[in-house]
Structures are given as structure tokens and as C-alpha cells.
Design a protein around this nucleic acid. Structure first.
Lengths: 111, 111
DNA sequence: GGAAATACCTTGACAGATGAGGTATATCAT
DNA sequence: ATGATATACCTCATCTGTCAAGGTATTTCC
């Protein structure tokens, strides 16, 4: 089963931040890791990804720099900031709460 | 903690369908029940609610009829259809899957 | 020389959520 | 009587995130 992307709308930023907790990385790799971690069930479209990077950077949750890795296409690396770490913590808490609430709302058995 | 509504975007229809499994109901009451069930952490804005009703009815997942309850403002009742029941089952399965995937994606501990 | 993989980015269109506004009825306090 | 509050419905313009479609550039392999 593959998830319709709109279901995860609003979680994009948290997913990227979580991935960056494992260390600096660049767009293509971040997306590959996320797809793999999701068991192929989900992956960002490129447009979504780069939109999110821009948003996250504008909000001060990540910073970016060009890598100088020698050969290959240039890569823009992203790093999570202190503010990003705080945001991720908040996002994780909100996710925990979301699970509780939605479980109550859609898995209801009786009244 | 109250959930930012965008987090639940895409689950609106499932939440309403689940509520209608308990029996026919009308907009105002559906919303009250949902808010209560969510422990006050979440409630639909009216515009969201009626947009969803229209969408659900157009998709054949619910039907509606005017109640003739005597006094008070008129009420439009909604009933879940067979197709709606199937849809809800699918939505619940997707939610189960979503939880698995997002847990893997944002609660990661190490690589 | 060209196909495929890697790697980045922008733009316009679309869909769902919602703020703001509207209508109408019943009840209750002043 | 009159105004406030609660119930109950609905629409429309706007905002935001997603994404299809398009683009650029480099390296590797056949």
C-alpha cells in the first residue's frame, strides 16, 4: 500500500528535520533515505522537497552550504539548527498527540 | 495541547464517516461529538465541515435529508452509505499504515 | 555520441482548510 | 419588547502545501 501524499501533508518538515538529526545531508540523499526508511511506501516529489527546504531555511530550522566534494554534480548540504532541533521535538510531541486523537476519532467502536 | 489543523488534513472525511457509523446525525451535533471525542484538542471549523459534507455526498459516501423535528432551526441529517462504509475501512487501513511509516520516519533513533 | 543516473531548481495549477461573512429560529434575561 | 446567546445552516475568497511539468548541469557507462 502506498500512502497518498496529502495524508502526510504537514509532516513534511518534521520528516526532513528527523532525517537531518542523523547528520548533514543533501537533497537527493535525504529523499532516498526517507523513501528507504518508509519501505518504499512514500517518497517526496522533488518539488515538494525543495519547497520544504526553502521553508525550513526561512524559518531558521536548517542552514545550507554548497559541498565541495570534487567530482559529480554539485550538492547543497543541509544542517539542522538548534531551533530546528526544538521544532522537531515539538513536532514529535504533536505527532504523539495526533495519534491519540485520531485513534479515538476513527477507530471508535461504540458510543 | 491543541493540534494544528493542517496536521489532520486529509483525515477530515474519515473522521466524519466514523462518526456517522454511530448513526445518522446533523452537522452541529457531529461537530460537537467530534470535539468532545477529541478531548477538546480538535474541532472542525464550520466551513471545513460543510465543505467535507458536500465532498462526501458528491463522492457517494453519505446521503442527506432534512429532518422534521418540530421546533428549533431546521437540521440536515447525514447518513453513511455502503460506499462510505467501504471508504472508511480503507481510510482506517491507510491510517494504520500512516502510523507505521511516520513512526519510522520521525521517531528514528539511529542509522 | 548518447542514454542513464545523479543533482539542483522554478513555475503554475490544484485541492483542502478556513476566516469572514451571511441567514434563520428559539430561549432567556433584562 | 429587546438584546444576547445558543442552535443550525451555508458560501466565497484566500492561503498553504503538494506536485506535474519543465528546465539546467555533471559523470559514468556502453
Amino acid at each position: 500500500m502506498s500512502l497518498s501524499a496529502d495524508i502526510l501533508r504537514g509532516h513534511t518538515d518534521a520528516i526532513i528535520l528527523a532525517q537531518l538529526m542523523a547528520g548533514d545531508s543533501y537533497g537527493y540523499e535525504i529523499n532516498k533515505n526517507i523513501s528507504q526508511r518508509a519501505g518504499g511506501a512514500y517518497g517526496f516529489k522533488e518539488a515538494t522537497l525543495y519547497t520544504a527546504f526553502k521553508r525550513l531555511e526561512q524559518n531558521g530550522f536548517i542552514t545550507s552550504y554548497w559541498g565541495d566534494d570534487g567530482p559529480g554534480a554539485r550538492r547543497r548540504y543541509y544542517a539542522i539548527t538548534q531551533a530546528g532541533i526544538c521544532q522537531l521535538a515539538a513536532d514529535r510531541q504533536e505527532w504523539t498527540e495526533t495519534k491519540k486523537v485520531l485513534d479515538a476519532l476513527i477507530d471508535q467502536k461504540e458510543d
